[in-house]
Simulated scan of single mutants.
Amino acid sequence: MNWLLVLAGGMLGAPLRYLTDRAVQSRHTTGFPWGTFTANMTGSLLLGFLTGAALSSHAMLFLATGLCGALTTYSTFSYETLTLSRTGAGVHTIANALGSVLAGLGAAYVGLALAQSLLG
């Protein structure tokens, strides 16, 4: 049963990540991976909010593990950072690596604080 919840959430999160990436990236001509960055920050914010909302374990499997797990992508972030590095885009490489980690933590914290202020 639990794996079905994760699967269902992932079936929503994966296309949402792809569509977010394509929509954002189509509006930028820089070499920076804004689409992945946006999907990861959105997922981090949502995961922080869900954590603060103290939902049931079934809801967390569906929303946090499934949806947010598929929406955010460490593998694409890693690949894009490596690609930036290989192409000599040093500033973009550092900005993506540090910015993603720091902004992701910040987004999760904001989501948690938002949930606590709205729901608690």
Rank of each mutant, 00 (worst) to 15 (best):
F32I: 13
A14Q: 05
G66F: 05
M11E: 06
S78K: 14
G104N: 00
A23G: 09
Q116I: 07
V6R: 00
Q25M: 11
S100Y: 04
G43A: 08
S85V: 12
A59P: 11
V91L: 13
F32H: 07
T51K: 01
G10V: 04
G99C: 11
L105Q: 05
T93G: 02
L19G: 08
S57R: 10
L98Y: 07
R22V: 15
L7N: 04
S117K: 14
A70F: 03
G48E: 04
N40R: 03
A39F: 01
G52T: 04
T87V: 13
G111Q: 00
A53L: 06
A115C: 05
L16I: 08
Y18T: 05
Y109R: 09
A14T: 02
S75C: 12
A108P: 01
L16P: 00
T38A: 14
L114H: 04
T87L: 13
M11H: 06
T81N: 13
L71C: 01
N96Q: 10
G48R: 00
G52K: 01
T30P: 04
T93D: 00
E80T: 12
V6A: 06
C68D: 05
G9Y: 00
L47G: 04
C68N: 03
L50V: 13
T30Y: 04
L82G: 11
L98A: 15
G104I: 00
A115D: 09
G88R: 04
G10D: 08
L5T: 02
A54W: 01
L12E: 09
T72Y: 01
V110K: 08
G9L: 03
N96C: 07
G69K: 02
P33S: 10
W3V: 06
L71V: 00
L55S: 13
A54P: 04
A23C: 08
L84A: 12
A59H: 13
L46S: 12
L46C: 11
N40K: 05
T73F: 13
F32W: 10
T76P: 11
T83V: 09
Y109Q: 07
M41V: 03
T65F: 04
T93S: 08
G9V: 01
A64V: 04
P15H: 14
S26E: 09
G106W: 01
T51W: 01
V101C: 13
C68M: 00
A89K: 08
M41D: 02
L7V: 02
S44F: 02
G88W: 00
G13F: 01
M41C: 04
